[in-house]
Write a protein that binds this DNA or RNA. Structure first.
Lengths: 203, 203
DNA sequence: GGACTTCTGGATCGATTAGTATATATTAAA
DNA sequence: TTTAATATATACTAATCGATCCAGAAGTCC
């Protein structure tokens, strides 16, 4: 924090949020600096680069901002105060609800904002891929916990079950973008979770 | 077809295929004309615009090319020579297999190549959205057929079941991009299809 | 061999891209 | 009130974007 000097004329935190909404809607590469600066309070290029190192550095901040706010829905996956099944179900339902809310762009920023990009931006894709891998890891931990607690049989195919839930989870982004209503997704989650019960009966 | 004049120095069909692979890998907006021209046989800008109206027109051709080749996997959804369940299962398995093949970009071009884009390219997104809607419609027809034939109970929640399968289908693109092996996806499909049996038992 | 048609190489278009240089404005601390 | 620190506005950079223009090359047709 600077103790001296001319104070910043815009709110940095609000600017990051504004940038997040743009990156979320249009993706990293398709969001131009001009658009960003306009949305961040009509700031000049000089002001932008004085506050942020680069477009890429801003995006990294945006990803952190997203994860610590909207992305919190997937924290359900690592909530060990519920049963493993409830954690998976809650993570899916909360993700679906958040991604279909009309108060912000549809779908998930982590899944959508760099699903494809130029070769020279591969590291941006990998940055997001690592975040998705985290969420997948939480889901896997859920299933391993269920097996350890006897909620699922020891013979359960862990990669299979993780892939089942994680693939559905990622598909929600595409469905939300195409306007599929939360009711249909929520009902599909109920159906999807029924496979858990079918598996647990074999215990 | 021109009967006179200087013949084209490159193969137009091969050029479209080369363009398809680029758009598939990097998406519509992130693929530049320079990249396209280089991949299409190092053709000049003049040659490009003589053969194709614009980058967008080329993309439309590419989408057609994709649908009539790799995209044929989803034709299973409208194959009425199998049971409805088999059609859904086959469509999912063939999509998963195709999307994880290493001989071409991973995932589905229709899902990935314009999942986000600039505001002025919204019509490109809508073009692809319509194609996805077609596939969803085929899946819905499958389920309606199953109900009509008594394979599923009349009380089946159609939008729910369509959303279950279609959400998983779209999630495959993200999983494939992140390197999830076909074996895990294939096993997940087996599990996913078990909900069909659970439903049909209620008939 | 023209005449006609089409394609190609190369230069170029204006707009936009991310990012910078410089000079000035605005603050806190000495 | 000076000094140091920071932010600002304005102008600007080099590179790239998709797309166009024109002169000449390379064919077919009569």
């Amino acid at each position: 924090m600077p103790r001296t000097g001319r104070p910043r004329a815009f709110n940095r935190d609000q600017a990051v949020v504004a940038a997040m909404l743009l990156f979320w809607e249009h993706g990293f590469e398709s969001t131009s600096l001009a658009q960003l600066r306009a949305a961040m309070g009509d700031i000049s290029a000089a002001s932008f680069y004085a506050a942020f190192e680069s477009k890429e550095a801003l995006f990294r901040e945006v990803v952190d901002q997203y994860i610590s706010t909207y992305g919190q829905v997937s924290e359900s996956f690592r909530d060990t105060s519920m049963t493993a099944k409830a954690a998976i179900e809650d993570g899916l339902r909360r993700s679906a609800r958040m991604q279909t809310e009309s108060s912000h762009p549809l779908g998930c920023l982590i899944v959508l904002s760099a699903s494809t990009c130029s070769p020279e931006l591969k590291h941006i894709m990998e940055l997001l891929s690592k975040e998705r891998e985290k969420v997948r890891g939480w889901q896997q931990a859920c299933i391993e916990r269920a097996i350890a607690h006897g909620e699922l049989p020891a013979s359960t195919d862990i990669p299979m079950l993780v892939t089942l839930f994680d693939t559905f989870l990622r598909g929600i982004s595409s469905q939300a973008r195409d306007g599929v209503p939360i009711e249909a997704i929520d009902a599909a989650i109920t159906m999807l979770m029924s496979v858990w019960d079918a598996l647990s009966e074999k215990t």
